[in-house]
Write a protein that binds this DNA or RNA. Structure first.
Lengths: 151, 151
DNA sequence: AATATAAAGTCACATTTGTAACTAACAAGC
DNA sequence: GCTTGTTAGTTACAAATGTGACTTTATATT
């Protein structure tokens, strides 16, 4: 590798890009639904992957469990999410979207989709493939759906 | 448009990747020099680009000026940075590294370099080129608001 | 059964951040 | 001179976050 510049420093670049790309979208879920980023993320997981526990969300999103706890509390007060005792383990609560939460998710999801498409539109198909693959590898995402049988 | 997954949502991926990749490095500048991330970033800018004002750092790093202000205050108390009245405009202060700051920068810079090389080592040369190029384009992107009617 | 260990989730406290108001210095217009 | 507006940087207060302790429940060992 040749000369090392700030412009080639990956964590820095990722941060800059993350700031830049999430700015306008955050104003939307905040303005429309008065949601914080952690709430949007939790809602996204529940809407996209279906009902799961707070621990599942924490594992998949890599957010700390206290952040999840607070986000869920907010979403519950907004009547977006409900808790259920579903297993024989009374410690864990299965979270699922209520109608209002489902509507908010559908709305924001479609906006996210368009926003994402717009961001990616500047890249060629080959660049898109490599970019997404590299980012997934860098983030070491654990996107495996929750396996109930393991719990 | 095909199936849209969280794993393909660029702002989300960027955030995850940014968190993941800056984690181990942050423990270094925190453990060795008791610096927060904003301090490290400000120090990085001063070390890499040379003396500049707080406003310059804010503009280049896209951090808010209050964050910069607090970071500079900390760096000044650690005797890493000094302020100078250099122009005829007495509002602005030129910031530059003091010897201890320069040493900290050199140390951390070389670690960042190795850390970066290690992060990139998992990618092929072609992937590296595309990844860095895409990230640079994403971080400089100035998107028009997708839909004004949303506000 | 009794004990120890661990997990799900919450709470309390301290740190960090965002927002808006603020001071001080400049700059333009009248 | 005097406004009016702008910029550099700081401060104060509110909001968000990280950390660790805590409660309750489950599991493993003896």
């Amino acid at each position: 590798m040749g000369e090392f510049s700030l412009a080639d420093f990956v964590p820095y670049l990722l941060n800059q890009a993350a700031e830049q790309t999430s700015l306008d979208f955050s104003s939307i879920y905040r303005g429309r639904y008065n949601m914080r980023r952690t709430e949007w993320r939790a809602l996204f997981h529940l809407g996209h992957f279906g009902a799961m526990t707070a621990t599942d969300i924490a594992r998949m999103s890599k957010m700390h469990k206290t952040k999840i706890s607070r986000a869920i509390k907010e979403l519950e007060e907004k009547r977006y999410v409900r808790r259920e005792q579903v297993s024989n383990d009374r410690r864990s609560e299965l979270l699922s979207l209520l109608p209002a939460g489902q509507r908010a998710f559908n709305d924001l999801y479609s906006i996210a989709e368009r926003h994402n498409a717009q961001l990616l539109s500047q890249f060629s198909p080959g660049e898109k493939l490599i970019l997404l693959d590299c980012l997934q590898r860098l983030s070491k995402l654990d996107l495996a759906p929750p396996d109930q049988s393991l719990m």
